[in-house]
Amino acid sequence: MSVTLNAHQFGRLLERTAGHIADEFIPALHGVRLEADDTFLYAIASDRYTLAVARYRHHGLDGEPFARTLPARALASLRRWAADQPGNTPVTVSLAENRLRFTAPQGEVGVGVDDGQEFFGWRGVLRGVIDQIPAEDGTTSPFPALDTRLLARWTDADHYLRLRVTADRQGALLVGEDFIGAQMPVRTRHDGFDTGLADDLDQVRTLWDGALAGAPAAAMPDSLPAARRTPHDAARTVPETAKGLLRQTLSSTHDLIEESSTSPTAVAAHASAGVTAWMAFRYLEALHHADPKLAARIVTETAEQLDDGAIGEFAHDAATAAGHDPNAWHEEFETKRAKQQTTPDEKPAATTSEGERAPATASPALAANG
Rank of each mutant, 00 (worst) to 15 (best):
H59D: 15
D62A: 14
A43P: 01
A43T: 05
L34S: 02
E35R: 11
A54F: 06
T50I: 07
A45G: 10
L51R: 04
A28S: 15
E35I: 06
V32K: 02
V32G: 03
E35S: 09
V32Q: 02
H59L: 11
P65Y: 09
P27A: 09
R33T: 10
A28M: 13
L51H: 02
P65R: 13
A28V: 14
L29W: 06
T50R: 03
G63I: 08
A52S: 15
S46W: 01
L34E: 01
A52T: 08
G60M: 12
A36H: 08
I26C: 08
S46V: 05
H59T: 07
L34W: 00
F40W: 15
S46D: 06
A36Q: 10
F66H: 06
L61K: 09
I44S: 01
L41G: 02
A54W: 02
Y49P: 00
T50Y: 02
H58R: 08
L61H: 11
D47I: 09
S46C: 08
A36D: 06
P27H: 04
T50C: 10
E64F: 10
R48H: 08
A52L: 12
I44R: 03
G31R: 01
R57D: 06
A52M: 07
I26L: 13
D37S: 12
L51V: 10
P65S: 08
A45Q: 04
A45S: 13
A43Y: 01
A45I: 05
Y42K: 08
D37I: 06
F40G: 00
A28L: 12
A36I: 04
A52R: 01
A36C: 10
V32L: 11
D38E: 15
R57K: 12
Y42W: 15
R48K: 13
P65M: 09
L29H: 04
R48N: 06
D62G: 10
A43M: 08
E35F: 05
Y42N: 03
Y49D: 11
L51Y: 09
A45P: 03
I26E: 09
A36L: 07
E64T: 12
G60D: 12
Y56I: 14
F40L: 09
L61N: 06
A43H: 02
A52W: 00
P65W: 09
L34Y: 00
R48W: 09
L51T: 02
R57G: 03
L41C: 08
D37Q: 08
R33Y: 13
D47P: 03
S46P: 01
G60W: 11
A28Q: 09
R48E: 05
L34N: 05
I26A: 15
A52K: 03
G63F: 13
I44W: 07
H58N: 06
A43F: 01
A54T: 05
A54G: 07
D38M: 11
A36Y: 09
D38V: 12
D47W: 11
H30F: 13
A52I: 02
S46G: 07
H59P: 00
A28T: 07
I44V: 14
A54I: 10
F66L: 09
D62V: 13
P27Q: 05
A43L: 04
L41S: 01
P65K: 14
A54M: 04
L41W: 01
H58M: 06
H59K: 14
L34C: 00
V32E: 05
D38N: 14
L41A: 08
S46K: 02
E64M: 14
L51W: 03
D38K: 12
G63Q: 03
L29S: 04
R55P: 00
D47E: 07
